[in-house]
Structures are given as C-alpha cells and as structure tokens.
C-alpha cells in the first residue's frame, strides 16, 4: 500500500500563490477491477492503473478510453515514464517488466532476488532505476536493457528514487534515514544528507536541479541546495508523514501528499507550497486516499481517488 502512495507522481505547474478554486472532479475512468495504484504521463493524455485482478491497464485521457492491458504478478506496483513511452511493473516475487506503452512490446525483463521497494523511470524514459528490498539500487538503460551501475549498498535498502528532469542526477530516500544524491551517469555519490531521524519516503528535484525536496516519516519537508550540499529550508511539521513530493515544471510550487498515520487507506491532505518561500498556498483533503496522480505539463495538479471500481480524477490546481 505504501508503494501505491509513493507512486503518486506529482508533476509541475506554472501557477504561483494565487488564490485557488476548490478542486473539481473533471473525469472518471471505469475499470473492470478495483484500481490500486494510478499514474499518468506529464502530458496528461495517458493514464494507467494497477488493478486488483493483476492487470495493468492504460487509458487515454480525458476520455477514459481503454488502450492496452498487461498481465501482472502478485502485489505489483508500476511506474510510467514522464513522456509516456515506457511503463514498468514489479511484483512481490521480484519479477520486473518494462514495456513500450505505445506498442505493448516487452523491452526488459528482470528477475530480482527480492521484491522491489522502489523504482523510477526518468522523465525522458531513457533510464530505469529499481531497488530490491535491502539491496543496492540498480540503474538500467531502457533502450538496451543493460545495467549501467549499482549504487552503494545501504543498510535496510531504498524507499524512494527519482531522477532529475535532465537525467543528470539521481536521488534516493533510504531506510537508514538518509537522503543521497548521485551523478546519474556514473553512480558517483555527490551528497549524503542525514537531517532526518526517520525514513524519507519521497524525493523530488526542482526542474533546474538546483534543489532537492525530501520528506517522510519525520513529517517535515527539507529543501537541499545541491551546490551547497546544505538544507536551506525545513518546513513546519505536518500532521502526518509525507508520502509523495513533486515540484511543478516551472519550479515555483511543490506538492506534498501526506500519508495518514492510522493507515494508508485513510484520506490525508495534499499540500501545495511555494518553492521560493515555503509558504503553503493550498491544502486539500480528498474524499478518499489518493491512489495516484500528477502535475500535467500544462500546469494542472491532478489527483486520482477511488470510488468502487472507477477512478475519480480531480484537478487540484
């Protein structure tokens, strides 16, 4: 369930601290089985979900037209590249597959020794990173399927992975409570932050990759200046742990999806704050716990909630 929350991908928007209207429900997607995790491309025209019947389904947006479906193993979670070209899914037994979302062709198939605890596709779809539980993160070239490198082993493994938009940097949130930043071309570690006492569940670069946001069970969001290697802002404590973070494409807003302490299926707020000041500009309590979503490249923040076997899509900004 935590992965379903962590897979809640938030994109970027051009809106600043202007007063916002109430979120509106703008679309619904009917699924043949209960959706457990939702994801979408940055363009906002392609959406997908892992469903309870072990199928990964893709739809076009906003019309909700079914496009394709893939068979999954038990307790799977998935990720979509920002450009919508690739979709990856990993199951509880360590079976990992990468498909071309447009053709349905399988591009990669990995058998990991453990189930994965985190994975990420770069925005351009060129890189794929995956972390088996308690094992080092592995980084792959999606075009060739070749493993490029492994990151150093971390006690307890990795919970969150993200690439910078230009795929120059890679960041991890690790079970030893650290946030680490790497050169995404070589795997060399560039920064190791130990500000958190508890595990970070979410990491997100600004589009100019000058800053990294991180948050998790500490219930705070830190902003790391990558050149300085220092935390330049720390938020006030939130009511619940931070499950997901992402920065708007214009770099002006950061969105945080919280995880309710009484269980990940209990709704918790989505917060939107200014990157420059840390000032919170929006808070929304969804009707049920979000199962995914994302900023679209045209500047809207979208969240998906569940209503029986349909996905409700909300435009938060």
């Amino acid at each position: 369930m935590r992965r379903a929350v962590a897979a809640f991908v938030l994109g970027a928007a051009a809106l600043a601290a202007q007063a916002s209207a109430e979120p509106e429900e703008f679309a619904a997607i009917s699924a043949p089985a209960t959706p457990e995790q939702f994801f979408m491309s940055r363009s906002g025209t392609l959406a997908g979900a892992v469903c309870a019947d072990k199928k990964l389904r893709l739809w076009s947006l906003p019309d909700g037209k079914p496009l394709r479906e893939f068979d999954l193993g038990p307790r799977s979670f998935a990720a979509l590249s920002g450009d919508g070209q690739w979709v990856a899914a990993a199951d509880f037994e360590g079976d990992v597959r990468l498909w071309n979302a447009g053709t349905g062709a399988e591009q990669m198939h990995l058998r990991l020794p453990m189930r994965p605890s985190a994975m990420a596709l770069s925005a351009d779809g060129r890189r794929f990173a995956i972390a088996p539980v308690s094992q080092p993160v592995q980084v792959y070239d999606t075009a060739t399927g070749n493993k490029l490198f492994e990151l150093p082993r971390v006690v307890g493994g990795t919970t969150a992975i993200t690439f910078s938009d230009d795929v120059e940097l890679l960041a991890t949130g690790d079970a030893d409570t650290s946030v680490r930043i790497f050169d995404a071309r070589s795997g060399a570690m560039l920064d190791h932050n130990t500000d958190f006492l508890l595990e970070p569940f979410a990491v997100a670069f600004t589009p100019d990759r000058k800053h990294l946001f991180a948050g998790g069970a500490d219930k705070t969001i830190i902003q790391i200046d990558i050149a300085l290697g220092e935390v330049v802002r720390k938020s006030t404590r939130t009511a619940d742990p931070i499950g997901v973070l992402d920065v708007s494409p214009d770099g002006r807003l950061v969105a945080a999806a919280l995880m309710h302490a009484d269980g990940f299926s209990v709704p918790a707020p989505v917060l939107v704050s200014e990157v420059a000041t840390g000032k919170q500009v929006q808070q929304w309590l969804p009707p049920s716990a979000p199962i995914g979503g994302g900023w679209t490249s045209d500047g809207h923040l979208i969240a998906a909630t569940l209503a029986r076997d349909s996905i409700r899509l909300w435009r938060i900004r």
Binding site: S134, G156, G157, T159, A175, T177, L197, L198, E199
Partner: peptide, 12 residues
C-alpha cells in the same frame, strides 16, 4: 532469516 526494515525505523 532477514526481514525488511519497514517504514518507521528511527535513529538515536
């Protein structure tokens, strides 16, 4: 046998 660390380990 090892088992995964879980989400709420806290240092110190």
């Amino acid at each position: 046998p090892p088992n995964e660390i879980g989400p709420f380990y806290k240092r110190l």
